[in-house]
C-alpha cells in the first residue's frame, strides 16, 4: 500500500459523515424540485471550490463537503426565504436541544427553544 499515489490512497467513494451525504441529498432534491437548476448548483459549487483553492484550504473530502454546504446555503439565500441568519439561528437551537437531551433519547427541536 505504501507505494500508492496520493490519488489511489483517496479512492474511497463512501461518505465519511452522515452530513456529507445529507448535503448532497438536499441539493439534488432541490434540483429535482426545480428550486435551482443543475447548472446553478455546479456554478455555486465551482465558485466555492475556487475560493477554497485560492485560500489554500487542504485538498480533502472534508474541504469539498464544506464547499458543498456553503454553495447550498448561498443558493438557498438567493432562491428561498432560508438565509444564513435563519440557518444560524436554527443551528443554535439544535445545538441547545442536543445539549439538553440525555444521551440515547431522541433529540427534538423543542428541547432547544
Amino acid at each position: 500500500m505504501k507505494n500508492l499515489s496520493p490519488f489511489l490512497k483517496n479512492d474511497s467513494a463512501v461518505f465519511d459523515q452522515p452530513w456529507h451525504a445529507q448535503v448532497l441529498a438536499v441539493a439534488d432534491g432541490l434540483v429535482q424540485s426545480g428550486l435551482f437548476s443543475a447548472n446553478q448548483w455546479a456554478a455555486a459549487l465551482g465558485q466555492q471550490r475556487h475560493e477554497a483553492e485560492t485560500q489554500q484550504k487542504p485538498d480533502t473530502a472534508e474541504t469539498y463537503y464544506h464547499c458543498a454546504l456553503a454553495a447550498l446555503e448561498t443558493l438557498l439565500s438567493q432562491n428561498s426565504g432560508v438565509d444564513r441568519a435563519t440557518i444560524n439561528q436554527r443551528s443554535a437551537i439544535w445545538a441547545r436541544a442536543y445539549l439538553a437531551t440525555p444521551h440515547g433519547q431522541p433529540v427534538l427541536l423543542e428541547a432547544g427553544e
Binding site: W19, V26, V82, I87, R90
Partner: peptide, 13 residues
Amino acid sequence: EPALRVKALESLL
C-alpha cells in the same frame, strides 16, 4: 458545526 447547519437547513426546508 456543519452537521448542525445541515440539520438546521433540512428542518427549515
